[in-house]
Amino acid sequence: MQLPTLLGAGLVLLGIFYLGFLSIKIRFPSVILYILFGIVLADLLLHNEILHFSSEVGIVLLFFVLGLEFSISRLGGIAKKIWSTGLLDVMLSLGVTMGICLIMQVDLFTSFLIGAVAYATSSSITAKLLDDKSRMANMETEFILALLIFEDIIAPILVAVLIGISSSGSFEPISAVYLVLKILGLAVGAVVLSKTVFRRFDTFMDKFEDEDFKIVLLIGIALTYGGLAVYLGLSEVLGAFLAGMILAESGKIERVEHAVNPIRDLLLPTFFIYFGTTIDFGDGVQMPVLLTIVLIWTMAAKVMTGYFGGLMYGLPKRVAFRGGLSICARGEFSVVIASIAVGTAKVFAGIYIVLAAFIGVLLFEFAPKLTNKIFGKPVTKKRNLKVPGS
């Protein structure tokens, strides 16, 4: 049985209110509650058009706001430092996981698919937790966001390869080249727009006193560039981030954040609820031994990526370890990749995603405490203040 679209939307908003309130009371991550809410109501909400649309808008606005923090010069500096960590991430999370599946006598295509599902950290869950836990200003946050953007570039390529193989049994290298060119074109377009059309955007914004017009304009920019990315067969997350980066060049990003944040905060929980509705448990746990091994390894792989990659990035050991514990949740790209699977592999992927999201959120939650347990509490340096005249 399916509810009318409007009734479903109303119940979702009431559920968001209650679960948000409950998460504060019991001190439990709201993201997990939203995902579980979606799983419970999957049969009623799976084809709810308003929920689907609002979830896309919510995730676009999240990364639009994140992109505001990264000017082109800053992003260029980060890219030079993150590529080695990105390759380490691909090798550990995708390559080794694929190898484990092959050793367990899983066929080559399914092994590749499971490795791809296990590869990408959930950008939406991680970014939401960084914001909720007031960790945006932490030393490791720039490193985490840089790695997430690297993964958001690699993940669409994996999706294209898997779709190509599943539909035709093979994948032409020219398709991968074409995909990379589209990513570069979208990024170059963002740079050109930031240096031309949006160069004096802050001055243009000063002409409008009505906040409603500003909200419409800003959300329109975010959705347009995110939608352009989807039209090109890329991720709306990447397009939205680039849209934010375009406006970052204009300066005075506080007014943009002030206008967009309320809409983002309203719609973002719907993404996690919709994510929950897409999880199909089928006939129960499939390949439990392999699931356990893959789950343990992929959690460890992300921690190692964060730790060793963080050290290469220039972070202190305790900060790098805390960063590694904060990037374990899987989410939206894993769901997209899992949708390509069929039969046992699809059920396996669905169960893995739920467990990895849950464990990842808990590791993020306790990352500071676990870091203090291993490395000890950070020592606050005392300053010797000299009194004038002493």
Rank of each mutant, 00 (worst) to 15 (best):
L6F: 15
L7I: 14
G8M: 07
G15F: 02
G38P: 12
I39C: 13
N48R: 03
E56W: 05
V57G: 04
V57C: 02
V60M: 03
L61F: 01
G67L: 02
I72F: 15
I72Q: 13
G76W: 06
I78W: 03
I82V: 13
T85G: 10
G86Y: 05
G86E: 06
L88S: 08
D89V: 02
G95V: 05
M98G: 01
G99T: 07
C101S: 09
C101M: 07
I103N: 03
Q105M: 08
V106H: 03
V106G: 03
L108M: 07
T110P: 00
G115L: 00
Y119K: 05
A127T: 05
L130S: 00
S134N: 14
R135K: 13
M136F: 02
M136Y: 01
F143T: 02
E151H: 09
I153T: 08
V161W: 06
G164F: 07
S170N: 14
V177K: 12
L179W: 11
L179E: 14
L179Q: 15
V180M: 15
V180D: 07
V188A: 12
L193M: 14
S194I: 09
F201W: 12
M205H: 04
M205A: 10
D210M: 01
L218R: 03
A229G: 01
L242R: 01
G244N: 06
E257A: 07
A259T: 01
R264D: 01
D265T: 08
L267M: 10
P269E: 05
F271L: 10
T278N: 12
F281R: 06
L290F: 09
I293W: 04
I293N: 05
A300D: 08
A301N: 08
A301D: 04
Y307K: 04
F308I: 10
M312Q: 13
K317M: 11
V319M: 12
A320N: 07
F321C: 10
C328L: 07
R330C: 08
G331L: 08
G331M: 11
E332F: 07
V335D: 11
A341M: 13
V342M: 13
V342D: 14
V342S: 15
A345V: 15
G350N: 14
A356C: 12
A357D: 11
I359M: 10
I374D: 09
I374N: 06
G376H: 06
R383D: 11
L385W: 13
V387P: 05
V387Y: 11
P388Q: 09
